[in-house]
Amino acid sequence: MVKGEMMMKKRKIKDSVCLQDKVMMAIIYICLPMIFVITVYPFWQTVVLSISDRKSAMEMGLHLWPKRIEITAYLQILQSQSFWNSLKNSVVRCVIGTLANLLIVSLTAYPLSKEDLPFKKGITWIFLFTMMFTGGLIPTYLVIKGLGLLNTVWALILPGVASAYNILITRNFMKSIPSSLVESALIDGAGEFYIWMKIILPLSKPVLATVALWVSVVQWNAYLDALIYMTDPDKYVLPVLLRRMLIDNQSSMYVSDVEGLVSTEESVKSAMIIISTLPIVLVYPYVQKYFSKGVMLGAVKG
């Protein structure tokens, strides 16, 4: 009997507290879907616009659903020489850039991960300093111009290839590799380069995968360097073409009308947005966890 009363009392307390909780949970369960909708809507609206016919694209409205599906805009883009050309340039830049970055970063991180390398600290600072102070836009442009790299893919790859941040997180990871592995190989007479290739690189796969993902996204999205260094329209990368079409409003210059089919500029622009973000949106859900892991790797102090 006494026990039952206690239970009742306890329950009452819990109930009165719970009202507050219920309100809070209600707020959370309303807010999170709202955040979802707000984040997704711009993408969705762009998809709808890209497949809308001329009339409904120009209409005022929420653009939640296309009234009539028309893929003219995509056909127009797929028939444009500029599009294929810039797509090729983007892929080349992305692949070479990522591979070069991985090579240089892993090559640099290994010596810096050695505790007893003389002048290790000073050399690390040479890289660290580049994160804190830069020469800026114009001096860098003049150097690249002076080296004759304008309008070559190297202008987009070499300046960022020894990224201090990536070197640091890779070095931190390599520090955690047991030194006994390296020592036993040394005793067996292996050279440092051999050790780097056969022991360090295979063991560093997780961090190198993260770095590769980061770099490829950055390379895919980068436009400013391409805008400045690649003045030849044949050398445009996708984001630059996108910028010319979206921001400078010159879509008609790059995408010509397909015979008999005319879509609005809005649809063409939207289709272009969709095509250029598609690789990221498709791959992203599978690799998302590596990205957030990378942030935590970076949080480890240098």
Partner: peptide, 12 residues
């Protein structure tokens, strides 16, 4: 790379 693309511009 760092000397060419980071330090040379600082000198510049």
């Amino acid at each position: 790379c760092v000397i060419l693309f980071n330090y040379a511009p600082i000198g510049g």
